[in-house]
Nucleic acid binder design. Structure first.
Length: 513
RNA sequence: GGCCCGUUCGUCUAGGGGUUAGGACAUCAGAUUUUCAUUCUGGUAACAGGGGUUCGAUUCCCCUACGGGCUACCA
C-alpha cells in the first residue's frame, strides 16, 4: 500500500485564517490516523503578496493548536527545501519539459494585449473570455510566431510566460473523496500561466510539481480549489505522472455566522470574535487583531470545535481529545455543505474543557491574572476560588475578572438590590452579624451558616430576606457562587470591613417602610 | 454572464425508500439553590419548491429556486 503523505500548504500572505487551521487539522488527523506523514510547505511564489512574519506566525499557530509537523519548513526533511521560493530550479526544469513535449508554450502578450483580447470576446458575446484553444492562435506566442522570432525574443530578454496548452476537446474526470466524480470539459479550461514573467511558477505548476516530488498521497484542501482541480489533473497527465497522482478531497468552506458568504475577518470584527489563532499585527497597516489564544480559547476546545465544523463521528459523543479525533476521524464522514461559524458553540466547548482541567491548571490561570494585577494570593485560597468558580467561567481570565471581590473590596454595588433590600431590619441584622462574627472560634462555611441563621432568628427575620443584601455588601453583585463559601474565602477581617462599610454607606430609601 | 459544488430544526449535524426524522449549541418552561450560573427534567423547532420513479420518497432521478466557490503573470 502507498505511503500516506499529506501536506498543509499555506501562503505567507498574512495571519493564518481559522479556516486554514481547520484544513491543517484535517490533514493532520488523517496523517496521524494512517500512520502517515504531515508536511508543511510554504507557498510563497507571489513575491508581491509576501508578508514578513507570516511564516513564523503559521508555524507558531500550528504548534499552539497541537498540530504537529513531521516534515517541512521549520523541521526539514528528505525533500527540502520546503519553501517554494527556494525551489525555482525544479519548476523551471519541469516547465521546460512541458515545452519540449508540446504541452506548453511561450507567450509574449502584454497586459494591454490580454485586456484587449478579453474586451473583444466580451463584445462578441463569448462566454469564456480567456486565453484558450479558441484564442491562442490570435495571440503573440510561440505557436503563432516563427520559431526564429520566438528564439530571438527569448534571447533578447523579452518578458514572457509559459502557458499550458490545453487540448481543444475531451473531458477531465476526477474522483474527489468528498464529492465523488467531477467532470469538466476540456473546452472550459484556459491556457493557464505556469511560469510567470518574473521566473516564479504559479500555484498550479508549483503545487503539482511539489506534490509529485514530495510523493504526496492525498491533497486535502479547501473547496475554493475544486474548480482548478481538473487543471491539476491535466498537468499530471501532461507530465505522465498519472499513476502517481494524489487523491483529492475538497473541504467545505467556513461560512459567516449570519447572512451570506464565506467567513471573513470583517464578520469576526463586526461580531466581536477572533478569526486568527494568535494575536496578529499587520505589518503594512499596523492593524492589530486578537487571536483565539489571547481571547482565552483553549487549543483543545478550538480543535474540538473546528473538527466538528464539517465533520462528525456519527455518534453522540461531542467532546473529543486530539487522540480521540485521530482514532475516529475519517474523510468519508466529512460533509459536503459549507458550515456556518458559530462562536457560541466554540465558547461552550471552552467551558467544557475548563471544567475538565485539574485544579492546579485553573490555579495557574488565576495566578497569571493576579501577577498582572500585582496581587498576592496563597495557594490554598487560589484553589478554593478556582473550585467555586469553575462551573461558571467561560475563559481562564474570568476566574479573576468575575472573582475580583475575593481580593478587592467592591467599589460598585448593585443599586437595585440596595434600594429594595436595605432597610432597618437589614441594618440591624448587619450590626448583629458583625458582633457575632467577631467571636466565632472558626470562620468556615458551617460556622457562617449557623451564625447567620442564628442572628437572623434572634431578630425575628428569615435569613432569606437578608441574603441578597448580604451578598451585595460582600461582593457588590447580586449574583455569584455560594455566599458562605465566598465569605469564608474572603476571611473574617475583610468581611467585617465590608459589613462595616455597608452599614455606614448604604442609604435606606426614604420611602422604605 | 459562464463553469463547478452544495441545500435536514435559528446553528453544527445524524439518518436514510415505510422512523414518533435522533443528538448537540442556542432558546423557552419547570425542578434544585441564599442569588446567578451549574445540574436535572421537559418543550418549541427541520427534510427549499415542483415534477417524476415507486405500493410508498425527506431518502433515487430531473428541473427550478436559493446559497457558495471559481472565472489573474493571487494563492
Amino acid at each position: 500500500m502507498k505511503e500516506i503523505r499529506v501536506r498543509f500548504a499555506p501562503s505567507p500572505t498574512g495571519a493564518l485564517h481559522i479556516g486554514g487551521v481547520r484544513t491543517a487539522l484535517y490533514n493532520y488527523l488523517f496523517a496521524r490516523q494512517q500512520g502517515g506523514t504531515m508536511i508543511l510547505r510554504i507557498e510563497d511564489t507571489d513575491q508581491n503578496r509576501y508578508v514578513p512574519g507570516a511564516e513564523e506566525y503559521i508555524i507558531e499557530s500550528l504548534k499552539w493548536a497541537g498540530i504537529g509537523i513531521d516534515e517541512g519548513v521549520g523541521v526539514g526533511g528528505p525533500h527540502a527545501p520546503y519553501r517554494q521560493s527556494e525551489r525555482k530550479q525544479f519548476y523551471r526544469k519541469y516547465a521546460d519539459q512541458l515545452i519540449s513535449s508540446g504541452h506548453a508554450y511561450y507567450a509574449f502578450d502584454t497586459e494591454a494585449e490580454l485586456e484587449a483580447m478579453r474586451e473583444r470576446l466580451k463584445k462578441a458575446g463569448v462566454d469564456h473570455q480567456q486565453y484558450s484553444s479558441f484564442t491562442r492562435m490570435t495571440m503573440r506566442n510561440s505557436l503563432t510566431l516563427p520559431a526564429a522570432e520566438t528564439e530571438n525574443l527569448i534571447q533578447s530578454g523579452a518578458p514572457y510566460v509559459i502557458r499550458l496548452k490545453v487540448p481543444e476537446s475531451g473531458e477531465i474526470r476526477l474522483h474527489d473523496l468528498i464529492r465523488g466524480e467531477v467532470v469538466v470539459q476540456m473546452s472550459e479550461l484556459d491556457d493557464k500561466v505556469l511560469m510567470k514573467s518574473d521566473g516564479m511558477p504559479t500555484y498550479h505548476l508549483a503545487n503539482v510539481v511539489d506534490d509529485y516530488l514530495m510523493k504526496i498521497s492525498h491533497v486535502i484542501r479547501g473547496e475554493e480549489w475544486l474548480p482548478s482541480a481538473p487543471l491539476h489533473v491535466l498537468l499530471y497527465k501532461s507530465f505522465g505522472w498519472e499513476a502517481d497522482m494524489p487523491q483529492f478531497a475538497h473541504l467545505p468552506l467556513l461560512l459567516k455566522p449570519d447572512g451570506n458568504g464565506k467567513l471573513s475577518k470583517r464578520d469576526a470584527d463586526r461580531m466581536g470574535f477572533p478569526i486568527f489563532p494568535l494575536n496578529w499585527t499587520d505589518p503594512n497597516t499596523g492593524e492589530k487583531s486578537v487571536g483565539f489564544r489571547e481571547a482565552g480559547y483553549l487549543p483543545e476546545a478550538l480543535i474540538n470545535f473546528l473538527a466538528f465544523l464539517g465533520w462528525n463521528p456519527g455518534t453522540e459523543q461531542e467532546i473529543f481529545s486530539m487522540e480521540e479525533l485521530i482514532k475516529t476521524f475519517s474523510i468519508e464522514r466529512i460533509g459536503k455543505a459549507g458550515a456556518r461559524f458559530d462562536i457560541q458553540k466554540a465558547t461552550w466547548f471552552n467551558e467544557q474543557y475548563i471544567r475538565l482541567k485539574p485544579v492546579e491548571v485553573l490555579v495557574k490561570y488565576l495566578n497569571e491574572q493576579l501577577t498582572k494585577e500585582g496581587i498576592a494570593c496563597s495557594p490554598e485560597k487560589a484553589a478554593k476560588i478556582v473550585e467555586v468558580m469553575r462551573e461558571r467561567v467561560s475563559f481562564p481570565k474570568d476566574f479573576f475578572q468575575q472573582g475580583r471581590y475575593f481580593f478587592q473590596a467592591p467599589t460598585a454595588f448593585d443599586s437595585a438590590v440596595i434600594s429594595k433590600k436595605w432597610n432597618t431590619d437589614a441594618a440591624k441584622f448587619f450590626q448583629a452579624l458583625v458582633a457575632a462574627l467577631q467571636g466565632t472560634a472558626r470562620f468556615d462555611v458551617e460556622t457562617l451558616k449557623v451564625t447567620i441563621e442564628n442572628v437572623a432568628a434572634g431578630l425575628g427575620i428569615k435569613a432569606g430576606q437578608v441574603m441578597q443584601i448580604l451578598r451585595v455588601a460582600i461582593t457588590g453583585s447580586s449574583s455569584g457562587p455560594d455566599l458562605m463559601m465566598t465569605i469564608e474565602i474572603i476571611g473574617r477581617e475583610e468581611t467585617l470591613n465590608r459589613l462595616g462599610f455597608a452599614l455606614s454607606n448604604f442609604q435606606i430609601k426614604a420611602t422604605a417602610s
